[in-house]
Design a protein around this nucleic acid. Structure first.
Length: 287
DNA sequence: CAAGAATCCTGTCAGC
DNA sequence: TGCTGACAGGATTCTT
């Protein structure tokens, strides 16, 4: 579920509430996520100081002072809750989540409680030496970070070159660019006026430039809005992201296209299925 | 090799 | 109200 903007929002929340803290309690309630959590996860977290956080694509990296990194992926339904245990400390006292789907709980000496909730259990948690982060099998093949300078039209054009797969599928491929998911690919393609069905390798340079700009813009705006809330995603403090109100095409099948007001030949927003996932687009505007 | 389908799992919602 | 089937933000693995 969570795509780059939601993962970035969660990571920032963890940074604010946990950085510099010392873990005093860790409890693994259910280890069998997509892949099993390391059996010794809880004991390796206990006593560690949280040194800092990073994000790579849709992955959160929590670095511990002892040279260990906890890798966290939220899958489709993963959610993080952060609550204050001590009501004397700043911030509202939030009731502790009661759900059978809270699989990992971490508490800090400074009074923060972290919970990982994931009903579908497509997410996962792993540990690795911080020095080996780049070589982790799930991180090693990731493409460029779309909000970093290295991601530009030349790089994207090279990644798309020779590909016959539909553009939609290429952009969902985390080796092409890291962090995009179904929602933001649909939105970026709409902004770039490119069809999700067009063959990746045939997109000309002006289109690739529009696409790079559109990806950057939609992600930047979504992060500023705290991500998109739908179904079960909320920010770690419980607040709703509000970027879902800014969607132009995602989930809007049958509605009028906001890009061609009054155009007689615009059939509105279409929904098609590509490699098992819904694509939303305007067939008049996106070619 | 590359493209698409199947798969993991649970919750929600539309339609009958 | 209750049941059934479709569908959901992901990413790997299996088929063609």
């Amino acid at each position: 579920m969570p795509e780059l903007p939601e993962v970035e929002t969660v990571m920032r929340g963890m940074r604010v509430h946990l950085e510099g803290h010392t873990i005093v309690r860790a409890e693994m309630r259910r280890a069998d996520l997509r892949w099993a959590m390391p059996p010794d996860l809880a004991e390796r977290l206990r006593g560690a100081r949280v040194a800092g956080f990073a994000r790579r694509g849709k992955y959160i990296l929590m670095r511990l002072a002892g040279g260990v990194t906890m890798l966290l992926h939220l899958g489709m339904s993963g959610r993080v809750t952060l609550t204050r245990l001590d009501p004397a400390l700043a911030g509202p006292a939030v009731p502790v989540t009661v759900t059978p789907h809270e699989h990992l709980v971490i508490e800090s000496e400074q009074g923060c409680r972290f919970g990982l909730v994931d009903p579908r259990r497509f997410g996962f948690v792993d540990l690795m030496p911080t020095a080996d982060e780049a070589a982790h099998r799930l991180l090693a093949d990731l493409g460029p970070e779309p909000l970093e300078a290295a991601f530009d039209a030349g790089m994207l054009a090279a990644a798309l070159h020779g590909r016959r797969t539909p553009l939609k599928a290429a952009l969902l491929d985390q080796r092409v660019v890291a962090g995009l998911g179904n929602i933001y690919v649909c939105e970026a393609l709409f902004r770039a006026r490119l069809s999700p069905e067009c063959q990746s390798g045939t997109v000309r340079m002006p289109g690739v430039r529009r696409l790079v700009a559109a990806i950057r813009a939609v992600l930047t705006e979504a992060i500023a809005a705290g991500g998109s809330s739908l179904r079960d995603y909320v920010q770690p403090d419980g607040a709703l992201g509000y970027f879902q109100h800014a969607w132009k095409v995602y989930g809007r099948a049958g509605e009028a296209c906001p890009g061609c007001p009054g155009a007689p030949r615009c059939a509105g927003i279409s929904r098609i299925v590509q490699s098992g996932r819904s694509s939303f687009f305007c067939a008049r505007l996106q070619r």
